[in-house]
Design a protein around this nucleic acid. Structure first.
Lengths: 138, 138
DNA sequence: CCTTGACCCTATAGTTGCTACAGGCCCCAT
DNA sequence: ATGGGGCCTGTAGCAACTATAGGGTCAAGG
């Protein structure tokens, strides 16, 4: 083949660690490639595409389980788009919830830092803010 | 002692699972308490306070490593507050980065869902959108 | 031609922050 | 004295990798 890639080359091309590539293979996300005479993995274009897909989806926060679902759908191209859409929608909901949670957290942290008097730890308001909340407040 | 708590009572009071309390002890976040004649853990007020602190900081997303730093500082009350402030600020930065990432992700998912007609996977843009990035980006 | 060193192989253990058993004690009320 | 809670230790499991040990392979330089 014109484009036979070693695992290291594939890893570099996709911003993945070699060990992670092997791990994706072991858990069935990336199909096992052909081997060279010396038992080295030999990847082709399809592997590069698929690994790019995997990495991108991971970056976007899809779990490996969701990813498996997407890949299964991608492999059966006559299937309805609705299932893929549903997965994406579910994920969008989760993302929005995460954003809201983090924004609340950010406000709280900012408040805490705001109150830090830069004195000694003894009167540090950060420690204070993290200390047990008043009874009844939680 | 007037306020000797069993592990179960302590756990309930702080919204922690019993196993988690023991685990905090094993990893050195919560000091090992005295034991009763029957070898039960017996906690006092100090443990309650410290565990509340731990739980609150965990809720705010501090890692156990950061927590260890905070607790170490909290124990040295004549130290400057600046280190505490720095830990909190670092954490705030991380939180803000995550929010930005998630907002980018949200945009992307919304676009994807938007473009997804209800045809077959063959023209589903979700798969496409997550396929290998343009040549220049690799 | 042979050696060196970068790469690759498998297998296994470690990471973070818990959670969930399994197989036993202990304690209190009935 | 017995039944059921709660407690004890120790171990294994979850995601999603990461890192190590102990080797084999390959291409280039001396």
């Amino acid at each position: 083949m014109a484009d036979a890639l070693s695992i290291g080359t594939l890893a570099k091309a996709t911003g993945t660690k070699v060990e992670t590539v092997r791990w994706y293979e072991r858990v069935g996300l990336l199909p096992a490639p052909a081997r060279t005479r010396g038992n080295y993995r030999s990847y082709g274009r399809a592997h590069l595409d698929r690994l790019s897909f995997i990495r991108r989806a991971r970056d976007l926060g899809f779990t490996l389980a969701q990813l498996r679902g997407l890949l299964l759908l991608a492999d059966q191209r006559d299937r309805s788009c609705e299932e893929v859409d549903a997965i994406a929608r579910t994920h969008l909901g989760e993302v929005e919830r995460k954003i809201a949670d983090l924004q609340a957290l950010r406000r709280e942290l900012a408040d805490i830092i705001d109150r830090c008097g830069h004195g000694t730890v003894a009167d540090c308001r950060i420690i204070e803010a993290l200390s047990p909340p008043p009874a009844g407040a939680r």
